[in-house]
Amino acid sequence: MILQAIAFYLLAATTVAAGLAVISARNPVHSVLFLITAFFSAAGLFVLLGAEFLAMILVVVYVGAVAVLFLFVVMMLDVDFAELRRGSARYLPIGLAVAGLLTIEMIFVAVSVAANGAAAHSTGPGLQQGSVTNAEAIGRVLYTDYVYVFQAAGVVLLIAMIGAIVLTLKHRVGIKRQDVGRQTARTPATGMRIVSIKSGEGIDA
């Protein structure tokens, strides 16, 4: 238990500190790196809660893919963040309102968990503890009770992906593209022409 407590406080402190650093770092790339640290230590907290499947998925999806693209974009863009920061006082009230709302929600959740215990809130039929691993438990709930919602979420993502492709796809004419099929199908017979050139005359194409 003592090891768990040490791990919890270490990870929780890292998450909070990294979260603060995300908004206070001057360099946007550092902000993204701190965000990654926050994700990673949050995954560690999931592991402590016994939700190892969620922890791994968090790392694979958010840290391994989403944050890489994020970092990619931030490194490539030449955004003047000092300029952006200047207007931040104007948006401060809205930001504070959202943060306040989230804090109140979290307090409600914490109070109700403290009063009833976390188990009272899990309604899924496949969530009996102990007998199944949590990957299996999530799978059972996701592919039975919530299968339509799950599929709908997949379709939403697919539409977003197709939308992005449609927006960026351009068919320009007159540019040379590689056609691998045509290249490999080329033989000496179709690919070259043997001509005999008389000296001093050259050839015209």
Binding site: F40, A43, E52, F53, M56, I57, V59, V60, V63, G64, A65, T133, N134, A135
Partner: peptide, 14 residues
């Protein structure tokens, strides 16, 4: 661990 292969996948994606 029960999610060993996912762990490897997560670490290698980092």
């Amino acid at each position: 661990i029960n999610v060993g292969i996912l762990y490897i996948f997560a670490i290698s994606s980092l």
